[in-house]
């Protein structure tokens, strides 16, 4: 490795100034062009900017959920001293860590589950058909009183069968926000962060929010709705494209790019982020869920966006084509 002469601090100062300005609220194409001219002033300017780009690449490749708590940790001398004692603990991290993860992931005991990007169809003991979408987990509890499906995470599609037991047992789906009772039917349930979604294709389903029995409501074929533990949002007409996942497709019909990225991310490990500047672009088309790389390729071929993949696919950023 040959050491190069240090870059003139005044040029570095100007480079820092450009970086600060280009990340500001009001940075325009004019600013970017001015910066492009600046870095062509001399080879030293170009060198300084190459370093700035290297810095931006490193920063841009860091997933916030991991980077923020790691870098923004409290730092005080007392803690530093305590860390010395932790050295021994850290030396055994690989084993301790594996155990820790198992405890953390609550659904590891689920009766049936799918990995990210996987789909699975099951036939339950009573003949009910259950279709699990990506990253989903259910527990099945059938007893003399009821047929209970506990949706721990993800999304399921259910086609009920007439119960073979001599006494009638209702078929129920439990989510974090409440309970659904099937009234002879074909429907899908999705567990999201802080809310559940129900779409009924045939028959009817009753929603019972966990903390508010009074707000029960029956949803009929062709309807859909969200509910929290306390209330049910206004019911709207169902969207048939919502079930495209059962065919391994994501059907976008004038869908916000931001929503599209959130949806696609469900089928892919790691993180996907959509630059807010392009989140409102409308996307239409059928995209394969089994091959999210291909779905991304299709997206960037059709729309004025680019997909930047970092850390071997762990981190994907969708942003406008004019941005660097």
């Amino acid at each position: 490795m040959k050491a190069m002469a240090p870059i003139d601090p005044r040029i570095l100062d100007q480079a820092a100034d450009w970086l600060m300005q280009l990340h500001g609220n009001a940075a325009s194409d004019t600013d970017r062009e001015a910066c492009a001219r600046w870095r062509q002033l001399s080879p030293e300017h170009a060198r300084a900017w190459a370093r700035a780009e290297m810095l931006m690449n490193k920063l841009g490749g860091l997933p916030p959920l991991l980077a923020m708590p790691s870098l923004d940790r409290p730092s005080n001398p007392a803690r530093r001293a305590a860390i010395g004692k932790l050295a021994l603990l850290l030396a055994v991290t690989p084993i301790g860590f594996a155990g820790w993860r198992l405890i953390e992931v609550q659904d590891w005991t689920a009766d049936h589950r799918t990995a990210v990007g996987q789909r699975r169809e099951l036939a339950l003991a009573d003949g009910t058909q259950l279709h699990l979408n990506t990253a989903s987990a259910v527990d099945i509890r059938f007893d003399a009183e009821q047929r209970l499906i506990y949706l721990r995470e993800g999304e399921i599609l259910i086609r009920t069968a007439p119960d073979t037991a001599t006494t009638y047992r209702p078929l129920r789906v439990q989510t974090a926000q409440g309970r659904l009772e099937a009234l002879g039917t074909f429907f899908s349930v999705r567990q999201e962060a802080g809310r559940s979604h129900l779409a009924v294709i045939e028959g009817a389903v009753r929603i019972e929010p966990r903390d508010s029995i009074a707000s029960q409501e029956i949803i009929r074929a062709g309807q859909q709705g969200f509910f929290s533990a306390h209330s049910i949002a206004p019911i709207t007409a169902g969207n048939e494209t919502d079930l495209a996942w059962t065919e391994g497709m994501l059907m976008a019909d004038n869908m916000r790019l931001g929503d599209f990225v959130t949806e696609l991310a469900r089928y892919r490990g790691g993180f996907m982020r959509c630059d807010p500047a392009v989140a409102d672009i409308r996307v239409s088309g059928a995209f394969p869920l089994s091959d999210t790389d291909r779905a991304l390729t299709m997206l960037v071929a059709t729309y004025p966006v680019t997909a930047t993949t970092r850390l071997r696919g762990y981190w994907v950023t969708i942003c406008g084509i004019t941005r660097r």
Binding site: S70, R73, L86, E104
Partner: peptide, 19 residues
């Protein structure tokens, strides 16, 4: 300290989001 903070952050990350 960094690795410890990183492991803490990782522990609360859903499994499918883990690198």
């Amino acid at each position: 300290a960094l690795e410890r903070a990183y492991l803490d952050a990782l522990a609360v990350l859903p499994e499918q989001k883990a690198p």
